[in-house]
Nucleic acid binder design. Structure first.
Length: 563
DNA sequence: GGCGGAGGCGCC
DNA sequence: AGGGCGCCTCCGCC
């Protein structure tokens, strides 16, 4: 059963009940303030709620203590279906852009802003606060795209996982990641010195800046200014082209040690220092604003707070509540295992069976040490052509021809300007107008050597993008299935109606890693559940193909203890 | 003043 | 000469 929620006006909502063929079988108008109660009662029938945008509905329901089991997020689903090669001939895919298309997809022709203003005024609203007719029409178009797809199963799973992700994102933001500001303050003070007055440098940074100034004989140097710093380094006789840490590391000079230390600590102070703490931690919780599907590959993004870049230095401030534990779990070598499943590479599946995949590659004889296996695999998935990674690639290709062929073919497709598609049906965007123009001008009769070089370089760039896209996007799908399965099982561990924050619940997600906040008595069971959910995700994506997805699950009091 | 690109670096 | 991000500061520009 599907129930479509639509706004009639600011304070009026209608719930339209549909049968399996999306025919309307009932509708009920909900008075102001009554939505939470209505949803809570309807949940007993396990409907799939259909709404334009999870962020527009779910936070308020969570605030009323109401949890939703499953939903269809029409905006997220629309974006997938518009691009997917698995429903390319559907009416939804062939229609001109409308207000269901995110703004990001409309303005992808830079320099052509005039076109934006020529479009229908509806486009100004990227995610519509849709009325009843618009919601039903969009839902039926999406259902049609699914039923006419040659691979409806994959797409249905993808949309279900994407929508479950939207629920999880709202729940994680609502619950928040436990964060102890007094411990964060101690961590900062130990590394930087006591908290300075606003605008002043912490004591340890000031001391390091002084050491750099005297070592470079540059008394007025501001180490925060790259231009200033580069000049001072050159004046001291150092051969550098930038002030990047990795370049400076290669230089032997008394200024370099304190400078690298300065850079590391000043980064901490500016990105996750006291100001960050006061802006983002409320009532002992960090509430990141997750954006499901915010990355072209389907990975999540975040807005504000840099939630996906929490440096290791501050993870000691992430502490479970008294009587509670964190289960910190990450999927081991996720992307190569995804590639294994996609390519059905039985040799690589064997290398990853029951052990560390990179050790397995060593055991297969393809390379002679774990570090080489890792750098070679990453190079295969990212498109490295030179250096150690490039040198090791041919050996990898001989040992695992199917896996390597899959990423090579994805790269060739991108170089041609073609689209590639993930395991469940998320397709890459097409290259933009500028890309096509550069390729076109290189094949024109009057093209120069420089034109052709630029076109080749640009084609290889897009090839690296599509090479990585197939793996990264499919890994993101696996992670969504993992979390959706885990969420379902966590809910089942407490009595129906238990408030989210009273039972074991997800509090953090980072591409291939999750944190569950769980009562101590359930922690071990949660750890086992995390692993079982990973196996289920593997089965959902790759059926019976024998690729394993081991997870490391640690039961800890603080995030810093894990890994 | 605000804006936005560049440089740089944190995470996967 | 490696894929995807977000966010900080500096600095030139309007």
């Amino acid at each position: 059963m599907h129930i479509v929620l639509a706004r009639l006006a600011a304070e009026r909502t209608v719930a339209v009940e549909l049968d399996d063929d999306a025919n309307e079988v009932g509708a009920r108008e909900i008075e102001a303030g009554g939505l939470g109660r209505f949803v809570a009662e309807a949940e007993a029938q396990r409907p799939r709620w259909v709404w334009n945008d999870t962020r527009a509905w779910y936070p308020a329901l969570l605030g009323e203590g109401v949890r939703v089991d499953r939903c269809v997020d029409l905006a997220l689903s629309h974006r997938i279906l518009r691009l997917s090669t698995l429903c390319a001939r559907s009416a939804l895919a062939l229609a001109p852009p409308n207000r269901w298309d995110a703004a990001a997809e409309i303005d992808e022709t830079p320099g052509d802003t005039a076109a934006l203003f020529d479009l229908d005024a509806d486009l100004a609203e990227p995610v519509p606060d849709a009325d009843r007719d618009a919601m039903l029409a969009e839902f039926r178009l999406q259902q049609d795209a699914l039923t006419t797809s040659p691979e409806p199963g994959r797409l249905r799973l993808l949309l279900a996982a994407e929508s479950a992700g939207a629920l999880i994102a709202a729940e994680m933001q609502f619950a928040g990641l436990p964060w102890r500001t007094e411990l964060h303050d101690i961590l900062l003070s130990d590394l930087l010195g006591p908290r300075p007055m606003p605008g002043a440098r912490p004591a340890k940074l000031e001391a390091l800046a002084g050491a750099v100034r005297s070592a470079l004989d540059a008394p007025s140097l501001n180490p925060d200014s790259q231009a200033d710093l580069l000049r001072a380094l050159k004046r001291a006789g150092l051969v550098v082209t930038s002030t990047r840490s990795w370049e400076l590391k290669k230089i032997d000079h008394p200024a370099i040690g304190p400078l690298l230390e300065y850079k590391k600590l000043s980064r901490l102070a500016s990105a996750n220092g006291w100001t960050w703490m006061e802006s983002w931690i409320r009532d002992g919780r960090f509430h990141p604003d997750y954006i499901p599907g915010g990355v072209v590959t389907g990975r999540w993004a975040t807005r504000g707070g840099g939630a996906l870049q929490l440096p290791r230095q501050v993870r000691g401030a992430v502490v479970a509540d008294p009587g509670w534990k964190f289960v910190v779990a990450d999927a081991a070598q996720l992307e190569p295992r995804i590639l294994t499943g996609m390519s059905a590479d039985t040799a690589m599946a064997a290398a990853g069976r029951g052990k560390d995949l990179y050790e397995g590659i060593v055991a297969s004889g393809a390379v002679d040490e774990r570090a080489h296996a890792k750098v070679a695999m990453l190079g295969a998935m990212y498109g490295a052509t030179t250096g150690e990674s490039g040198r090791l690639m041919p050996r990898l290709a001989r040992a695992f021809p199917r896996a390597i062929r899959l990423v090579e073919e994805a790269a060739r497709a991108g170089e041609r300007g073609d689209v590639v598609t993930s395991r469940l049906g998320r397709s890459s965007p097409r290259p933009g107008a500028a890309w096509l123009q550069t390729q076109g001008s290189a094949s024109a009769p009057e093209s120069t050597e420089a034109d052709e070089r630029r076109a080749r370089s640009q084609a290889r760039d897009w090839g690296r993008f599509t090479r990585n896209f197939v793996v990264q996007a499919s890994a993101a799908e696996w992670a969504l299935c993992w979390m959706a399965e885990l969420r379902k099982r966590l809910t089942a561990m407490t009595p129906p109606g238990t408030r989210l924050e009273r039972g074991p619940h997800l509090v953090y997600f980072l591409h291939d890693e999750v944190i569950v906040h769980a009562p101590e008595s359930l922690a071990d069971e949660v750890a086992a559940t995390v692993a079982a959910s990973a196996r289920e995700a593997g089965r959902l994506l790759f059926a019976t193909f024998p690729v394993e997805f081991p997870v490391t699950a640690a039961v800890v009091d603080t995030y810093a203890e894990a890994k």
